[in-house]
Design a protein around this nucleic acid. Sequence first.
DNA 1: TAGATTGTTAATCGATTAACAATC
DNA 2: TAGATTGTTAATCGATTAACAATC
Lengths: 216, 216
Amino acid sequence: MKPTKISEAVVRRLPIYLRYLNELSLSDVQTVSSQDLGEKLDLNPAQIRKDLAYFGEFGRKGVGYNVGYLIEKIRQILKLDRPLHVALVGTGNLGRALCNYNMYLKDNMKITSVFDADPSKEGVVINNLTVEPMSRLPQTVKEKEISIGIITVPAAEAQNVADRFVEAGVRAILNFAPTVIRTPEGVRIHHADFTSELLSLAYYMNHEEALDERNE
Amino acid sequence: MKPTKISEAVVRRLPIYLRYLNELSLSDVQTVSSQDLGEKLDLNPAQIRKDLAYFGEFGRKGVGYNVGYLIEKIRQILKLDRPLHVALVGTGNLGRALCNYNMYLKDNMKITSVFDADPSKEGVVINNLTVEPMSRLPQTVKEKEISIGIITVPAAEAQNVADRFVEAGVRAILNFAPTVIRTPEGVRIHHADFTSELLSLAYYMNHEEALDERNE
DNA sequence: TAGATTGTTAATCGATTAACAATC
DNA sequence: TAGATTGTTAATCGATTAACAATC
C-alpha cells in the first residue's frame, strides 16, 4: 500500500523512538504526542509524525500515540519481532566490550557468535560466547542463521573480514574499523568509526568565536 | 574571505579524507585526484572537490591535489595542528577499550584524563592513565586544557556527566551512552550509539526482497 | 598542444519544516 | 462543544551531482 522508498535518515530515527517509548512503557505512560517525543529527543514533531506515517496510521487525532501499540509497530517495521542473530569478528578490547552489550540490545537481537583470526584466541570465552576460528565462519553463519556482522578488527583486515561475511551470506555489516570498506549491492554497510567522529569534533573548537564575533 | 557556513556533513567527511591521505603519504604517493579519492572512499568526486573548495584552492587544475599539502591543510581546518586534549568518563568495558585507541588518533589528539564516579575505581591505571574521581573533573579540565569529552557511562547517568562536562568548560562531547542528551548552544554533542546503529540495520533484512521483487 | 583535472555554477534531488483540514 | 493532535500537502531549506570554463 505504501511503496514509498524510505530514506536511511528515517530508519535511523526509528530505534531512537523505540528506545524512548520503551522507557515510557516502563513508567506506565499510556499515550505520547509527537510534541512530547520531539522535546525529549530533540527532533521536530512534524518530522516524527511524518516518519511514522510512512508506515501506517499509528496515532489518534487529538489524542496522540498509544505507547504500547507504537512500540509493537516499530518493532515490526524494524523486523525486531523475531530473533536476529549477530556475529562479531575481532576480540580485541573493543570487540570484547561490545560483547557485553547484549543486554542493551534486547529486542530479539543478540550477538550469538564471536570469531578471531588469531588461533591462540580459539576457545576463549567472552561473556558466555566461545571464540571460534575464522574457518568456522561460513558454517556457523548458516547454522545459527546469522544475518548481521560486526567488524572490530584492525583497519588493514576489515575489508577482508567484510568479504568473508558477505560470502557467508550476511545481509548487513557494522564496521568499527577506521577505514572505508565496500560491500556488493544488497549488503548494507554502516560505519561506526569513533576516531573520525572525534577528529570531526575538533573542527568546532573556537569556530564559534569566529562566527559569533558579535552575538551580544 | 569564505564566510560560508560549513555543513556538518562536510566536516564529517574531512577526517575520512585525512585518513586516506595519510595512507597515501606513507606509500609515498605525491598526488591524488578527486577521482581517485572518490573511488577509494565511495564518494562522488564533485562532492570531494566542493568540500575542499569551501576552505580554499588546494588543488592544481589538470594535476590534482598534492598529498602532503592537502594533509597539512585539512589538519589546519580541523584544528589538529595543535594539541587537543580529551577526557573520558566511565571506565566500563567500552571506556577502557576506547582508552587504547590513543594511538589511532595521533594527529595531536589524545585522551589525557579518565574519570569514574565509582570511588573504588580511583587510582586504577588504564593504558598509562590513572582514573580520577568525578570531583576532580573541573580542576583537571582546566589544568590540562581539555576541550573534548567522551561519555561511556550507563544511559541513566549520561546527561548528568554531560552537564558536568559543560560546566567545566568542555566544548564538544561524544556520547556513547544509548540515550539522547542535550547540551546548551555552543557545546557540540555527537552521538555514537552502537545499539541504535545495530537496530536500524535490522530494517534492511529482507526489505530488499520486497523492493527488488523483479530485479532480473 | 592535447589531455587531465580543478573550482564553481546551475540543476537536481531529497529531507525538513510549516501549515492546516480532519477528527478524536 | 472546544481543545488537542494527527496525517498530509505544500513550502522551504539544504545537500548532492552534473556540467563546463579555466588552466595546468
